[in-house]
């Protein structure tokens, strides 16, 4: 039914635009609010309390309004066009990632045949934005932060791709919907056979997202605020929202690849059309919760430890995982 309605190009376009314009800030806010409340719970605090009357639900809304009111500071020596464009690039990477997330049967912005390939490629756009921000800020801390982000992306892109590759081998397709359908067909989510790949994917996506324990590009105790040091006002808000939205979208991709995406056994096929997005969101939020949990439980690793973890452990293990998966696929 929804699929019928969306088959009209113009209806679909308007619906998609609206969804993107509303959903990404909304997701960012929900995740951000969750982080505030959960960190408060973990630290014996109350967290946001007064904004919005109850539980402080409007805290992030108020924060957003506050950010828009702030002065837009640009350092005198900054490379102004790059400095201004960097948050947009980060946001673009975030938005573009939502294109290939399958929300339900037929509910996908564009089911590219190279969906996962596209997702992994476009998620690196965020790092380019971060590097731009670090370079253009004319601040040594920002520069170090940007360079750390670049080094981190190069190191962790490989295990991320390899662990996704193993799933692609199992599914026999790179289409995101195809991967979900392959898991339905197989009767089990790929995490059962790809547990190693799943763990590596989560670790690598934590690094891609610069979340603790891999938040070296920001590292507020060392680099003040890393590449964000010189940002203020709505440009900072862009980074802020992008971070939380990215957390969600990376989790959604992990869910799609390893945890069966929008599918849950026992739910009738026609109900999945409506329940699919809910299932996906719930599964993703579980992963987001884990990320928030790590954030408030772990300290930060050092740059050399981060690199050696990637190059000495994650890449060889994920390579071996790919080979094993290939052998398994051929033999069976």
């Amino acid at each position: 039914m929804i699929a019928d309605l969306l088959s009209n190009f113009w209806v679909a376009l308007v619906a998609k635009l609206l969804l993107v314009a509303l959903a990404i800030p909304l997701i960012g806010m929900v995740v951000g609010f969750g982080e505030m409340k959960l960190s408060a719970k973990m630290q014996a605090r109350v967290g946001p309390y007064f904004a919005g009357g109850r539980w402080g639900w409007a805290q992030l809304l108020a924060d957003g309004i506050k950010f828009f009111q702030k002065e837009d500071l640009i350092p005198r020596d900054a490379d102004k066009p790059v400095f201004k464009f960097a948050p947009v690039v980060v946001m673009m990477g975030t938005v573009a990632l939502f294109v290939v997330i399958p929300w339900g049967p037929g509910l996908i912005f564009r089911d590219l045949s190279v969906g996962i390939f596209y997702a992994l490629a476009i998620s690196s756009l965020t790092t380019v934005g971060v590097l731009m921000a670090g370079w253009s800020s004319a601040n040594k801390y920002s520069l170090i932060g940007g360079l750390r982000a670049a080094g981190q992306m190069i190191a962790y892109e490989l295990p991320l791709v390899f662990s996704a590759l193993a799933v692609v081998i199992m599914a026999g397709t790179m289409s995101m919907q195809g991967i979900v359908e392959a898991q339905i067909e197989a009767g089990y989510p790929f995490v059962i056979l790809q547990i190693v790949g799943f763990v590596i994917f989560v670790i690598a996506s934590l690094a891609e997202l610069s979340r603790i324990p891999f938040d070296l590009p920001i590292a507020e105790s060392e680099l003040v605020m890393g590449y964000l040091t010189e940002y203020s006002g709505f440009r900072f808000l862009f980074f802020f929202l992008a971070e939380f939205a990215n957390m969600f979208s990376m989790s959604a991709i992990a869910v799609t690849l390893f945890l069966g995406g929008w599918y849950l056994p026992g739910i009738p096929a026609d109900a999945l059309e409506y329940l699919g997005p809910v299932i996906l969101v719930v599964k993703s939020l579980i992963l987001v919760f884990a990320m928030i949990w790590f954030r408030w439980a772990f300290p930060r690793v050092r740059q050399d430890q981060l690199q050696s973890l990637a190059w000495k452990w994650l890449i060889p293990i994920s390579l071996a995982n790919v080979i094993l998966t290939g052998v398994f696929k051929v033999v069976l």
Binding site: S39, P213, S221, A297, P299
Partner: peptide, 13 residues
Amino acid sequence: YPLELGAASPLFF
């Protein structure tokens, strides 16, 4: 000290 290493929670305890 843990905060300087990136762990925020021990601060509150």
